[in-house]
Design a protein around this nucleic acid. Sequence first.
DNA 1: CCTCCACCGGAACGTGAGGAGT
DNA 2: ACTCCTCACGTTCCGGTGGAGG
Length: 417
Amino acid sequence: MIMTNSLNNLFQRLLENESIFKDKDVLRHSYTPDVLVHRDEQTEELATILVSALRGETPSNILIYGKTGTGKTAVTRYVGKELENMGEKMGVKCCVIYVNCEVVDTQYRLLANLARHFGEEIPTTGLPTDYVFNKFKEALDGQEQVLIVILDEIDKLVKKGDDVLYNLSRINSGLKQARVSIIGVSNDLKFTDFLDPRVKSSLGEEEIIYPPYDADQIRDILYQRAEIAYNENVLDGSVIPMCAALAAQEHGDARRALDLLRVSGEIAERREDKLVTELHVRIAQDKIEVDRVVEVIRTLPTQSKLVLFSIVTLNTNVLSQNLSSQSITTGEVYNIYRKFCKVVDMDILTNRRVTDLISELDMLGIINAIVVSKGRYGRTKEISLSVSVKNIHDVLLDDYKLRPLQNYNHSSKIGYF
DNA sequence: CCTCCACCGGAACGTGAGGAGT
DNA sequence: ACTCCTCACGTTCCGGTGGAGG
C-alpha cells in the first residue's frame, strides 16, 4: 500500500516536472526545420541547379563542402523535399534518395540500398555487384523520372574506392527514360584528391561551399528552434547568446549549439529547476566534452589504451612529486608501457609504432604532444593530458583486458618502477 | 661554431583477416 | 572451395634535426 503510493507520487512528481520542453526532438540533428535561417543563398543556389529536373532535364551533379554543423545536410534535405513536392504538383516524377555513406560505405551496400528503393528484393550479401547494378538500372528505367541521389559524407565512401561513383556518374548513357544526378556532401575539402580525374570532373560540375556560421547567425537559429522546442519563459535571457558564443568558438558548429541547448535543458529538468540558466549551459558544456572523450577512449584499441594508461600514470607521478616543470617524454612513456604490457600479457609494440599511437591520441584531443628539442638531451615529444585524469583512468580500467593494472592506480607509490 | 643526444617521421615491406570473383 | 585483392596494423631501416654544452 505504501509502496504503491510512493510510486504514484514518484511518477506524478516527474510528470509535473516535464514542463520545460514542448518538443525536444526539434533540437536533434535529424530534425529538418520548415525555414532555414541564414542559408537563403545556398538554398537558392541549390534550387537553381535542381530546377531543371522539373523541366525534364538532367540537373548537373553537385558537390557540397562545409564543416560539420554548417547546414549542408539540412539544406540539401530541405530542397530535396521541396523538389519532390513540386514535382508531384507538376506531374513530373522526381525521386530524391538520401544516403548516409557513413553507414552505407561500400559499393554493394549503396547499390542494394538504391535498388530496394524501387521495390527490388536484394539480400545483404551474396549477389555479384554488377547484377545488383543492373537490377537497379532496370527498376529505375521502368518509368520516366529524375532520380537525385544525395550522398552524405561522401568522403567515407570514396575511401573504399571510387568505382561506385564512376559507375553512377556514367549511368545516364545506359538509360532510356530515367535520369540520375548526384549530390555529394562532404566536410573534407580535399577529398577529391583521391578521385579518378574523370569522376572528379563529372561529379563536380557544380560546387557549393558552406561557410561556418558566426555567433549572431547561430543565435538566430537557436531562437527559432527554441520557440518550438521549449515552453514559454523557461529560458533565461542569457542562455541562447551563451550557447551561440560557445559554439561559434568551435568553428561555427550549429549542431554543437543545438546540443548545448538541448543538454542544458535536460540538466535543468533533471535537477528539477524551473528555469534554464547560464549555470546549466556551463554544466552542459562540460558534460558534452566529457561524454565525447569517454566515448573516444572507450572505443580505443587496447594498445592505444595501454599507451594512454602509461601517460596517465606518469602524469600523476609528476604531479605527486610536484615537478610541474618536468613534463613527460616519449622515452618515459615507452619504458612504462613495456612494463604494463607484461602485466597485462600483451605483445610489446616497437618504439616507432608507439610514436604513432601517441600522435593519434594527440589528434583525438585526449593529450597534447608537441615536439621540442632539449639540446644536448635530445629531441622528443612533450606530452601532457588535456582532460581530467580521474575520468580517463576509470574509463580505461573498464576494459577487462586492463584489469590487472588496477592495482597500479595513482594513489599507489612509485615503488614498482 | 660544432657535436651529439634522443627521439621524429618517411618509406618499404610483412602479415593476417575479410570480401569479391570464379 | 579456391585464388586474388585490399586494408589495417606493425615492423625494420634509416636519414633528419633543434639546440645545450663543449
